Computed example of a mutant assay.
Amino acid sequence: MELKATSSKTLYVLLGTLLALALMMVFTTKASAHGYVDGPKSRALLCKEGVNKNCGAIVYEPHSLEAPGNFPSAGAADGKIASANGAFPELDAQTATRWAKVPMTSGANTFTWTLTAAHATDKWDYYITKEGWDPNSPLKRSDLELFCTINDGGKRPDFSVSHNCVVPERTGYHVILAYWEVYDTANAFYNVIDANFDGGFIPPGDGDGDGDGDGDGDGDGNVAEWSPSAVYLNGDRVSYNGAIYEAKWWTQNEQPGNSQVWALVSGSDNGGGDGDNNGGTDGDNGAIAAWDSKKAYVSGDQVTYNGIVYKAQWWTLGETPSSSAVWQAIN
């Protein structure tokens, strides 16, 4: 009898262990696949960098745009494609000027993903909005056409993945959907890219009626007072001790005049700032300073590199002027 009881106990322990392992495998599979498009920069990544504003929680996790797969026959619903089926609803806002647009050209292009956790992959699909699509209406299936597919057949990718695709002929503003379908779960990742096929980078507009202005107002055209409890993003302006400051990147409870995140726009800076408010000059004679790989630059800052003057189109750090779209040569 004692032997039988011991055997039964051992069996229960074994069954419990197997069940726990099975549950761990399920949850690990669900959580292990994450990534975002960083070349050309996706809407979500530009939110994280503070270029796009009023983005919601995606600024903390641009890698988490996960929703059911099997798109377009299933998956994210029309009107919720950009947000991964409503996971980050702010991303579904769609007007002609709501989002920053990165420069692109038709023809050969390389799309690069950064994966925070690689996972076995079925395929990667790339869609683009059709000519004549409505940029003032939330993205839907009928707006899109497939132009590139990369089949992985279940293999596990590297943490950086690049795909060479031929983008159809387009002009003006178009949206590209980069879609990553996981192999052994029912989920996929949805990243949209706002592209300008007519030239350079276009910052978010402030006249589209959706509250996406420069983030610095208090509703009556005046710059609001800095609040230590408020969260500010790149481009937001505040007043503090009679001066106007502009945020260079995400910040909270960092006092204007005493933190390099704030650039002095107008008025007197009586704080202990670091002198990083000169828009790229050397602070002595107004000459344009040489590019510094360890310095953060914001839209409009100018630097010299290899004898050429470049202007930053959005926030950047460590991106070489001659080899990054963030920098525009101006002479």
Rank of each mutant, 00 (worst) to 15 (best):
Y179D: 00
A31N: 15
T129H: 10
D284F: 10
V298E: 04
P168R: 10
R141Y: 01
V298Y: 01
W250A: 02
L139P: 08
D194L: 01
A263W: 06
Y179S: 02
Y190W: 13
G318W: 02
K101W: 04
S137W: 00
K30C: 01
T114G: 02
D269F: 11
V326L: 09
A188S: 13
G272H: 04
D269E: 05
A325K: 12
G39Y: 12
P157A: 06
K311W: 09
A96V: 06
I176V: 10
G75N: 13
L19E: 03
G172W: 12
G69L: 07
E61T: 10
G215E: 05
R237T: 14
W291E: 04
E66H: 06
A57K: 08
G16M: 07
G209Q: 03
I193R: 11
T6R: 00
L115F: 09
S83E: 01
V166Y: 06
A296T: 14
K101N: 07
M1D: 14
A84H: 12
F88I: 08
S42L: 13
A296C: 08
I150E: 12
S266Q: 09
A186M: 03
Y126H: 02
T304E: 10
A108R: 05
G50N: 08
A329F: 11
D301L: 00
I128F: 05
K123D: 04
L19W: 09
D143V: 05
V326N: 03
G209N: 01
T29N: 15
G257W: 10
P204G: 02
L46E: 04
V192D: 06
V167H: 01
N285G: 12
G200H: 14
T6L: 00
F71Y: 15
Q313K: 15
A243S: 08
A230L: 12
L115I: 10
D292S: 14
A87R: 13
Y232A: 13
G275D: 02
A178G: 11
A33K: 15
Q94F: 07
T171H: 08
F111D: 01
N136F: 05
D206P: 11
A289C: 13
Y310N: 00
Y173I: 08
D210M: 10
Q94R: 07
Q260P: 11
L139G: 00
L177T: 09
S142Q: 02
S299C: 03
D125P: 07
N241C: 03
F189R: 06
V182L: 01
A77I: 07
V26Y: 14
V303Q: 02
L23A: 06
C165M: 14
A31C: 15
S42D: 02
A290H: 15
E2N: 03
W249K: 02
F88A: 12
T114S: 01
D218C: 01
F111Q: 04
Q302D: 03
D125C: 07
Y245L: 12
N164M: 10
F201A: 04
A290F: 15
K48F: 13
G271R: 05
S227F: 13
P256N: 12
G154K: 09
Y297M: 13
G209M: 08
S32G: 14
D208N: 13
T121D: 02
Q313S: 15
D214L: 13
G257N: 04
E49P: 03
S268M: 11
E225W: 08
N191G: 00
L23Y: 03
S227P: 14
S64Y: 15
